[in-house]
Design a protein around this nucleic acid. Structure first.
Lengths: 144, 144
DNA sequence: GCTTGATCTCAAGTTCACTTGAACTTGTAG
DNA sequence: CTACAAGTTCAAGTGAACTTGAGATCAAGC
């Protein structure tokens, strides 16, 4: 009846595989105490932290970025309104940018691909921000 | 002045690296003829095909899926209105679903995370469709 | 005490979408 | 003819996010 839960329990309650939880711990995204046996005991609050991680992933953040965000939050004290609003406004901007891109793509689908011309030049496919904005793999621009 | 271009030219005009073009050819997404030297000569039409690939990637399709889509298009004849509209309506559905999810996430950002409760249960984070809907890695649902 | 299931660590494997490197050949400008 | 850029193949490496497997230990029920 105390507030520590096993990794199995955590996995069931969060929907995140135990192997992923170990991986997150290794990456420093979550933390656990250990029972005498060496088994992990997670504080119940880890569920909230995992929710945060899952949420951020769906938005499109990498685990590295999520780690940064988690680090920015105050270690022990409960994050306050100011903490959240700073973070959520940054995320909202990101979400909005991605939505805008998707809408632009959707429109191009009708205007350019729909007519068979596939003239991406007019469509301004050039991507803003988002994951692919960095110097990673994948096409970066289209300037025929 | 004929309609065949080198891989370098293709890379410059499409913004896609030559190595990626070779990779796409290996995967069967694009095709080339060969000069006597063994060097690739792409028909100019490959640019349109590459635009298609880049476009589809931004929407979130994998190369496998893109290959399927390309295969569904008529091999030689110019794709007609019917071909495009079938395809584009499927893509539009996908885009719309992803936009809807992002909007849902954005709202949760205000309603749930914004208040500090992070009570994802109320937020209905459960993801519809999109990449992560398949049995791949990554968290699948949240049912605290 | 025994079996079964949960957990542990650590190394290696997986998928996706490419990139990089090595070793070599072609094409072009001077 | 000689540079040097551009092209070739093939194997291996990369990074993200995990998963899987091996071999061992721990906890719980009968």
């Amino acid at each position: 009846m105390d507030s520590l839960i096993t990794i199995g329990e955590t996995a069931r309650r969060s929907g995140v595989a135990a192997s992923a939880l170990r991986f997150y711990e290794e990456r420093g995204l979550i933390a656990s105490e250990r029972a005498g046996s060496g088994h992990r005991r997670f504080p119940r609050s880890v569920l909230r932290r995992i929710a945060f991680i899952v949420f951020a992933q769906r938005i499109g953040l990498t685990l590295d970025e999520i780690g940064d965000e988690l680090a920015k939050l105050p270690g022990d004290r409960m994050p306050n309104q100011r903490d959240w609003s700073r973070l959520s406004s940054a995320w909202r901007t990101r979400i909005d940018a991605r939505i805008a891109e998707l809408e632009r793509l959707r429109d191009s689908l009708t205007e350019c691909i729909g007519c068979g011309c596939l003239s991406i030049r007019r469509c301004r496919l050039a991507n803003p921000d988002d994951r692919a904005g960095r110097a990673g793999p994948g096409p970066r621009y289209w300037l025929d």
